[in-house]
Write a protein that binds this DNA or RNA. Sequence first.
DNA 1: TTAACCAACTAAATCGATTAAGTTTACTTG
DNA 2: CAAGTAAACTTAATCGATTTAGTTGGTTAA
Lengths: 347, 347
Amino acid sequence: MKRKLTLKSIAKEMDVSISTVSKALRDSPEISEETREKIKAYAKLYNYKPNNIALSLKNRKTNTIGVIIPQIVHHFFTTVIRGIEAEARENNYNVIICLSNNDFDKEVLNMELLANGSTDGFILSVSKETMQKEDYHHLNEVIEQGMPVVMFDRVVEGIACDRVLINDTQGAKKGVSHLIRSGCRKIGIITSEDYVSVGRLRTEGYLDAHDDFGIEVDENRILKLDNIDDLGEGSKKRIKEFILNNDLDGLFTVNELFAVYAARVIAQSGKSIPDDISIVCFTDGELSEHMVPSITAVSQHGEEMGRKAASILINKLERPEDETEEYGTTYIETSLIERESTRKLLR
Amino acid sequence: MKRKLTLKSIAKEMDVSISTVSKALRDSPEISEETREKIKAYAKLYNYKPNNIALSLKNRKTNTIGVIIPQIVHHFFTTVIRGIEAEARENNYNVIICLSNNDFDKEVLNMELLANGSTDGFILSVSKETMQKEDYHHLNEVIEQGMPVVMFDRVVEGIACDRVLINDTQGAKKGVSHLIRSGCRKIGIITSEDYVSVGRLRTEGYLDAHDDFGIEVDENRILKLDNIDDLGEGSKKRIKEFILNNDLDGLFTVNELFAVYAARVIAQSGKSIPDDISIVCFTDGELSEHMVPSITAVSQHGEEMGRKAASILINKLERPEDETEEYGTTYIETSLIERESTRKLLR
DNA sequence: TTAACCAACTAAATCGATTAAGTTTACTTG
DNA sequence: CAAGTAAACTTAATCGATTTAGTTGGTTAA
């Protein structure tokens, strides 16, 4: 096992001082052409690479972005990460990903861990438990220490940071409007309780669309589930009852999973999609794409969101003394992807 | 913005030396009870946390595992990561995830980056391009430097490292045997070219199952696609032709996506699943679970795989001088999850 | 009385890299 | 020819924490 090369070992081998080696490798004019070339040749031959940890310590800069998300299993987060990764790489930043599993304690732990020298800043989507607790001391702490934070998707108010959001309300409105335009008049929505911001906002979009078209909203057609992240037996039961006990001709859901399960219930009840009931869901993922029938979806453009969040964070990091203390909210537009679960519009 | 506490700043504030602070916080008997308590109280009050970077440098140990995977978008990798995360956390390790996007250069870049001080060891699944190129210098380099490596899922031979594998052959055999037992005799397989190890092994399992039951294999019933990771137009076309031009009563696919698309083609051709054609796929993911009909799948137990890989790596890291130079291969058993795409067996 | 010894600290080296501040040697110039 | 200067290095400080090797003042035993 060969030890890794260090400046020290090179210096010893070549019988010069450590600083000469360092300067030679960084092309300093202080070092003679001859020595410089000799050292560089040696370093190249033995594949010297500076130790990142030492550099981080010296520069008090890690060039690493910490990403904290509730769950990686979600296709959406996956695409966001891809965007973050891409933008980071282009700007010479690394990405460390930590999962909170929607657990408050884990979110706090992860942040503290990464904040102790591992990262320069954070990109995060707040866990469900944190939102319920409304305890944001961990966020305020890292911000206090001068680490910039960018929140995305699931954000909270009252924190000194930038935000990147899906235009949830407008996205939902697009989806529901599409249903209305295609002829639906009795549209149901399967959403979450209001404390999950995305659920609340998407419900608003649903209401807005009805408003725009002057269609009355029937409260019975709104189903609020408490867990938006997965589909338990309880949720399944409520969705089934909701579908069977309502005479719907259209359905909007705030995620794919609800739509997929609803589609199953609808198929089993002998009705056809899209002719008897049309479906639109929020989030364009693998499920909506491959399902039979495939489901018309509101695409969140996760990759773009990730890129944007990373670019905002990197910007702050690169110009640290630009502390204008101004924080903005960027909205990522959604788009509707028409598939087989809705009727074609006549244009 | 308040600066972060360091031993230095505490020492200054309390008018003692840096080493006194360090020792006090680590409960050294060299420091008097009184001073110790005072320093600890101060540190607690102002929430002192040691700088990880400095510790890593000093200890030449980062307590971080580097994970390099082809694509995070895949549900399977997602579950593996969850397993790695869990095992790591329990043992006080961090996890850094990097994506290679199935690209050789990126895999090399990521490894070099992380190898320069950021991690103590690696868990990786080799990218497709690397397998085609058969260039493993980056792997050999980090191993040379004394960093242990554990490969999982997509592994290559001839590298001095441990391996954690799905029992691909047996898994495929389980799936195909199930089809045979349920009455299928003309079973097709949609797999990958042989250079992708998982494809090759699963094809073997398909052949083995036929062998066991004494059923002849018809070469026309084997479709080898070149891209196993996603479903392009070319693959779709070939799958469609394959399904329509073969008189099959059963189908085994090496991933979910192939099965889902095949199911669509079958449905469109007016045949019914599972009665006319039964389907089993490798990989238990969201698609097979939620599809209508849901698809019988060979579960890879990704989480268990991740845990195992992490536990092997951590073991090596904790006992570094145990260099017996012995490397093992661990197999994770698969299990069959029966769903709606196959007929129930009479037992 | 004084060497020995202990309690309770502090100083300094170390991890690996960067860099400001010296040092040496040769050479120019008034 | 002495002073000044530039070239080419080296020394040492620094990042933050740990740890080994001192140091100091007081107590104790011979």
